[in-house]
């Protein structure tokens, strides 16, 4: 992209994408809102969100880039439903845009999606635009 989007512009477009994909109100889409917990996103919605972010920002998002499900289903990285230290390292490498500190305290596979926030989405887009 030739134009550099400001953080506010990124937030506005991410907000619009989430309003359209999840049928939520503008006031609900705050930076700290979690996608699954607060905004009610289901797994299929993540695919819809990917479509919308690609369109809004003119970027290409590969499968597993926003949400690395391959790591979460890899037995090298997951044991008894929890992500091990090698898995955490892999997640950090793949998700430099996300704050995983809370997830690390209880790395239950199911918690990762639950903890993704609107701000994480904005960071993801910023990371993609800078790449």
């Amino acid at each position: 992209m030739s134009t550099v989007s400001s953080k506010q512009e990124i937030f506005s477009k991410v907000q619009e994408a989430l309003i359209d994909a999840l049928g939520v109100d503008e006031e609900e889409v705050t930076p700290t809102a979690t996608l699954q917990g607060d905004l009610g996103a289901e797994s299929i919605d993540f695919l819809d969100i990917v479509f919308r972010l690609e369109k809004a920002f003119g970027i290409k998002i590969e499968r597993g880039e926003l949400f690395p499900e391959d790591i979460l289903t890899n037995t090298e990285y997951v044991a008894d439903g929890k992500v091990n230290s090698a898995g955490i390292a892999a997640l950090k490498e793949r998700m430099p845009f996300a704050d995983l500190s809370r997830f690390e305290t209880n790395p239950n596979v199911q918690n990762l999606g639950k903890q993704l926030t609107v701000q994480d989405m904005c960071n993801f887009v910023e990371h993609k635009l800078a790449a």
């Binding site: 695919l47 819809d48 990917v50 479509f51 690609e54 369109k55 499968r63």
Partner: peptide
């Protein structure tokens, strides 16, 4: 068709 990706289309 708006968009096509490996996991589906809109």
């Amino acid at each position: 068709i708006d968009q096509v990706k490996d996991f589906g289309a809109s």
